[in-house]
């Protein structure tokens, strides 16, 4: 066990865990942030996607000891002071989910894209989401939601 200082969703958090513990496990079980999901634990499906220093990152095998003080943002931290993130509104609007298990990871990954490219074409969106698996076939709705959010962000 060792103590780690983390910055998660803008707050300082301290946890005492084994240094090899994956970030995902810490987020879910120690910090009560359960939006990021365990899908495979193998860095193959994207269900555990969070932002680390603004970049989308898989958290299921990322040891807590390697996170350092880099800012970690989870789906729970996406909403802004003024209300939901444009992507969150767009996902609700487009009903972009079936079972929804893949959605938190996809939403965070899309947020990373829109943060540096507010005007992605369809191909850029698909490329960004290429490693995010959805088994329900909710893809068309998800793509529509990302396009809608991008439109809204551009105003």
């Amino acid at each position: 066990m060792a103590g780690f200082e983390l910055t998660v969703n803008g707050e300082s958090r301290r946890v005492d865990v084994d240094p090899a513990t994956p970030l995902l496990t810490v987020l879910r079980n120690d910090l009560g942030l359960r939006a990021a999901k365990l899908g495979c634990g193998l860095e193959q499906c994207g269900a555990c996607t969070v932002l680390v220093a603004g970049e989308s990152a898989l958290s299921c095998r990322l040891p807590i000891s390697q996170v350092g003080r880099r800012e970690v943002t989870t789906l729970e931290g996406l909403a802004e002071a003024g209300g939901l993130h444009a992507l969150q509104r767009a996902f609700i609007e487009e009903r972009a989910a079936q079972c929804g298990y893949c959605v938190p990871g996809i939403l965070v990954s899309a947020a990373a894209l829109l943060a540096w490219n507010p005007d992605p074409d369809d191909e850029a969106i698909r490329r960004q989401l290429a490693d995010q698996l959805c088994r329900c076939g909710a893809h068309p709705r998800i793509l529509a939601a990302v396009r809608r959010a991008a439109r809204e962000l551009r105003g």
Binding site: R28, A36, K37, E76, Q88, R95, P104
Partner: peptide, 18 residues
Amino acid sequence: PRREMEELVTTGGRFVHD
């Protein structure tokens, strides 16, 4: 509106795993 959509996109919903 789809039920539980807002919960899903803000807190990740509530699955058996959660």
